[in-house]
Amino acid sequence: MDQALNILVARLLAHRFLPRKDPLARRALIDEAFRESLDHRLAGCGLRLLENPYAEYIAVGLAAEMEDWVFGEGENWLSNNMGMPRDAIALLIVVWALIILPKRQRQIALSASDPDDMFGGTSPIEFGDEVAPGIPEEAIYADFGKKLGGKARFSMNLSQLAKLGFINRRNKMVFEGPLLDLMIDYSRLAPRIINGALADLLKIDAAAVEAPIED
């Protein structure tokens, strides 16, 4: 088990994310003893496994008790450790709301018909462009671009989000990237968006989107 753990942790750190269908990633999701050892190994480095049944990938992130040590610098609090400026973070939240909220609604509807065996066998949770279709870059810019720094900044920030793995760009369309559904806490952010400032702008139906509790 130790060798398998070493390989999985090394691959997660080197590649930043792994598809959940990867044999070791799948083992971490269904093997209770292996998962406990993995959590213990990551906790020893101030990290935790990032995963949820609605995400196609797994990754690692900071443990909660490490956030002050990493993000707190004197009187300033870093918004992220990826070098993203504030307008890039704002764009990330907009893209997350446009892609992940509708995707989660579709996945919940699909899984409601067969709630058993979320991880093994034929999973009711589906992934891909069918449940998370792309959004035209021009449409995002038309609604939010001028508020996020204009054309040049918008294009630059999209490129940065793609480079970091949050989105994929194909044919002037924005698609979900490996980290988009992992690096943002859905259970905390979704209610704020659904009931907050973006609700009217995004025309989100609060009754149709429920925020599940995530690990």
Rank of each mutant, 00 (worst) to 15 (best):
M1K: 07
A4P: 00
I7A: 10
V9G: 10
H15P: 01
F17I: 02
L18N: 04
D22S: 05
D22Q: 04
L24E: 02
R27D: 05
R27V: 03
R35F: 11
E36K: 14
E36N: 11
H40N: 08
A43K: 12
R48K: 07
L49S: 06
Y54I: 03
A59T: 02
G61D: 07
G61R: 02
V70W: 00
G74Q: 09
N76M: 08
W77Q: 05
L78M: 12
S79L: 14
N81K: 06
M82Y: 13
D87G: 06
A88R: 08
A88N: 14
I89M: 12
I89Y: 02
L91Q: 01
L92R: 10
V95D: 08
V95E: 08
V95N: 09
I99H: 10
L101E: 03
Q105V: 15
A109G: 10
A109V: 11
A112P: 00
G121S: 06
G121A: 03
T122L: 14
S123I: 00
A132N: 01
A132E: 03
I135E: 02
P136H: 11
E137Y: 00
I140S: 10
L148I: 07
K151L: 14
A152T: 15
A152H: 13
N157T: 09
Q160M: 12
L161P: 04
K163S: 09
K163W: 04
I167F: 12
R169H: 07
R170M: 13
R170C: 08
M173E: 13
V174C: 03
E176S: 05
L179T: 00
Y186H: 10
R188W: 06
P191K: 01
I193W: 03
I194P: 03
N195E: 14
N195Y: 15
N195T: 10
G196K: 01
L198R: 04
L202I: 12
K203D: 14
I204Y: 10
D205W: 07
A206K: 11
V209T: 11
P212F: 02
I213P: 06
E214C: 09
